[in-house]
């Protein structure tokens, strides 16, 4: 009874360690991710480069990943720690993307089970999905209504706001 949670946490830490190693040795371009402090493997910080040919191009966006104790079973949560104007990112920075949603019942009924979280996904896949989400917002599952509206109706204004955030994040 006393051992169970620690054993579970052990599995999560082992898995996170493997993923961390993989990301360091052979991570995709434009992505950097790792624990903020290795004493706590459940809090990661990551940097994502803005994809090319989008208003996010040239930007670097910091985010935190928070892993649950039963990690490969439940998905982590991801939160941008910079200003992010995007239809699928809540105003507090929380990312709303299907890969971060647990399987099981889907209250909104617009995601197929294969798109959602399962233990075969990984941090790398999440970050790649988020990168492609930056390039192609999904306005069916809007998290930031204002961003949705601007993105749909006034693409130039959307680009202007995003570019202003890119500059602000880099301190220019």
């Amino acid at each position: 009874m006393y051992k169970k949670p620690s054993a579970k946490g052990g599995t999560a830490i082992r898995r996170l360690m493997t993923e961390y190693k993989q990301l360091i040795n052979d991570g995709p371009d434009g992505i950097s991710a790792g624990p903020i402090d290795e004493d706590n493997f459940f809090e990661w910080e990551c940097l994502i480069q803005g994809p090319e040919d989008t208003p996010f191009e040239g930007g670097v966006f910091p985010a935190t990943l928070t892993f649950p104790k039963d990690y490969p079973l439940s998905p982590p949560t991801m939160k941008f720690t910079c200003e992010m104007f995007h239809p699928n990112v809540y105003k507090d920075g929380t990312v709303c993307i299907s890969i971060l949603h647990p399987p099981g019942d889907d209250p909104n009924m617009y995601e197929s089970a294969s798109e959602r979280w399962s233990p075969i996904q990984s941090v790398e896949k999440i970050l790649i999905s988020v990168m492609s989400m930056l390039a192609e917002p999904n306005d069916e599952s809007g998290a930031n209504i204002d961003a949705c509206k601007v993105w749909r109706n006034d693409r130039a204004e959307y680009g202007r706001i995003v570019k202003a955030n890119v500059r602000k994040t880099l301190g220019l």
Binding site: V60, T81, K91, D92, G93, N165, T169
Partner: peptide
């Protein structure tokens, strides 16, 4: 909105 949250730059 863009000025509602303050984050330090990188």
């Amino acid at each position: 909105i863009s000025s509602s949250l303050a984050f330090p730059d990188l």
